[in-house]
Design a protein around this nucleic acid. Structure first.
Length: 508
RNA sequence: GGGUCGAUAGCUCAAUGGUAGAGCAGCAUCCUUUUAAGUUGUUGGUUCCGGGUUCGAAUCCCGGUCGACCCA
């Protein structure tokens, strides 16, 4: 089609003005597709073979022996450098990019003319031999190619990529195509989860799946999402934790179980919170919270060795290097509190003016303390605002007040404390673990005696299970999203979730 | 839920209240080893939506939508 000629004022009177679609990339690409179909070729009915991913092909080249190894590769065209009768192009597949050299006198006049009409973003398959270009890049000398999918819309800009955060999240596929850091980071998440599964499997843990829809949303203190089952005629809650189901399996004789599953909390969205997120929960019979220390270290060590490739990771917020090798610090909760407030607040725990002294201490630190708060809530405010953010290196915080968790065993020496740890890394809670409460009477009491704003729902069916006898066990929860933030140096939970929760918006 | 900031071409970004521009992409041209390839020319705009102020609004004001950050 000839381009419109003359200045706009002249052209506006020309009858074929509305045929000028050169500025409309969707129209240009649609037209190319139509022409191909009219000529008897439909890319959407074609396919290609893939003998090598890009990275495998790059490795398959034998140095000094060009054009001896044949490969079939496939992927999306992301770079085109057209030099008239030959072109260097690059395709992107799961493992990265590889360069193709398409030469007119190799593939023939007609296929070459057709290749010239291929657009950035189209998906092709190509076969040929590997060689090293003048500049040293391993490249496929293309002998044959097939267009296997037409992209009707253009890719975002090649150099700056896609920066608009809304589009990055809503159209993650574009982010994955043009932003290599996003690809690498989200790919890393898959490898992290795979590594954890492997570590647990090697220790004879059984992976299970438990219901997302529950009659009682227990195991944590959080507002649940509610939904309705029509046939059963009743409301259900989306689970807020995995704990109570997995403990029922301990009762059932599964001694080592774990689940990696999505849980849902109907609360705010922030850099560290997504309404649905992924939790690993592990339960091991005849172990305890100290056994979980050993297990979480093993999980981290395997991750460092096999996925991250280093035992030192830079903490994005502080710039400090987090060291996962060697011994991890273990410290009592109240030792940290005492150090933060500057006096032995812990020794006043049974004193009548404990709440007043704790409030005073917290306010001295600049914290906003509500009048109705329980003492443990005041102290925990100090912990979460003033202490937790400073715990950059891996730290097991132990001997927490019992009110913070009704599902853990009480400490033998001090019944006001529980046998648990809270693993903090990079200023975040990464993994809580307990010696699990298995006394049905104490468990019932703990549910009933809950105080403060965040109370767990009592699951009476769970208590029934405990009455049948649950073996002593260590249990642990690991927030997979936060773990990924930590290990990938991401700034936001949205950067480690493929499709983070956003307000619905009308698609264009 | 509150506060701050943002939304301009397909993408990345400009534009004292006074004709909305550039780079990439697109279209056309030259080029058979390029590396953000290069060359010559060129198309493309409901400035997020709805009101208001003004001779005149991308720009100022009000409301809304969506997003980011901070706080709860």
């Amino acid at each position: 089609m000839p381009p419109a000629l003359g200045p706009p004022s002249l052209r506006s009177s020309m009858s074929d003005l509305h045929h000028d679609i050169s500025h409309d990339q969707y129209a240009v690409r649609s037209k190319k597709l139509e022409e191909m179909r009219a000529g008897g070729f439909d890319p959407f009915r074609a396919n290609a073979q893939q003998t090598h991913f890009s990275a495998e092909a790059l490795k398959a080249h034998v140095d000094g022996q060009d054009n001896t190894v044949s490969v079939k590769v496939a992927g999306r065209l992301v770079v085109i450098r057209d030099m008239g009768k030959s072109q260097f192009v690059k395709i992107l597949d799961q493992e990265g990019q590889i360069q193709l050299y398409v030469k007119k006198d190799v593939i023939g006049d007609e296929p070459y003319a057709a290749f010239k009409k291929i657009d950035l973003g189209d998906i092709i398959g190509a076969e040929g031999t590997l060689f090293k270009s003048k500049t040293g890049e391993v490249t496929v000398r293309v002998e044959k190619y097939t267009l296997v999918s037409k992209a009707l819309r253009p890719l975002p800009e090649k150099w700056h990529g896609l920066t608009d955060s809304e589009q990055v999240y809503r159209q993650r596929y574009l982010d994955l195509i043009v932003n290599p850091e996003s690809r690498a980071r989200l790919m890393m998440r898959s490898r992290i989860v795979a590594s954890i599964r492997q570590t647990l499997a090697s220790r004879k843990f059984i992976e299970v799946e438990t219901p997302v829809l529950e009659g009682v949303a227990g195991g944590a203190a959080a507002r649940p999402f509610v939904t309705h089952h029509n046939a059963l005629g009743s409301d259900f809650y989306l689970r807020i934790a995995l704990e109570l189901r997995l403990k029922r399996l301990l009762v059932g004789g599964y001694d080592r179980v774990f689940e990696i599953g999505r849980i849902f909390r109907n609360e705010g969205v922030s850099r560290k919170h997504n309404p649905e997120f992924t939790m690993l929960e592990v339960y091991q019979a005849y172990s305890d919270f100290q056994g979980m220390m050993e297990l979480i270290k093993a999980i981290f060590h395997d991750l460092c060795r096999e996925v991250i490739g280093t035992f030192e990771i830079k903490h994005a917020a502080s710039g400090e290097m987090i060291n996962f090798a060697g011994d991890w610090r273990t410290v009592r909760y109240f030792d940290l509190i005492d150090a933060a407030v500057g006096f032995k607040l812990s020794e006043l725990r049974s004193a009548p003016d404990y709440a007043a002294r704790a409030t005073e201490a917290a306010r001295t630190l600049g914290l906003d303390i509500h009048s109705g708060w329980q003492p443990f809530e005041i102290v925990n405010e100090i912990f979460s605002k003033k202490i937790e953010p400073t715990l950059i290196q891996p730290t097991f915080v132990t001997h927490l007040p019992k009110e913070l968790c009704p599902l853990a065993k009480l400490n033998q020496e001090d019944a006001g404390l529980i046998d648990v740890f809270e693993l903090c890394i990079g200023g975040m809670e990464v993994a809580p673990a307990y010696s699990e409460q298995n006394d049905p009477f104490v468990q019932r009491q703990m549910f009933e005696q809950q105080a403060g704003e965040e109370q767990q729902k009592m699951d009476t069916d769970f208590l029934l299970a405990l009455e049948h006898g649950m073996p002593p066990a260590g249990g642990m929860g690991v927030g997979i999203d936060r773990l990924c933030i930590l290990l990938t140096g991401a700034e936001s939970i949205r950067d480690v979730i493929l499709f983070p929760s956003l307000r619905p918006s009308d698609a264009k």
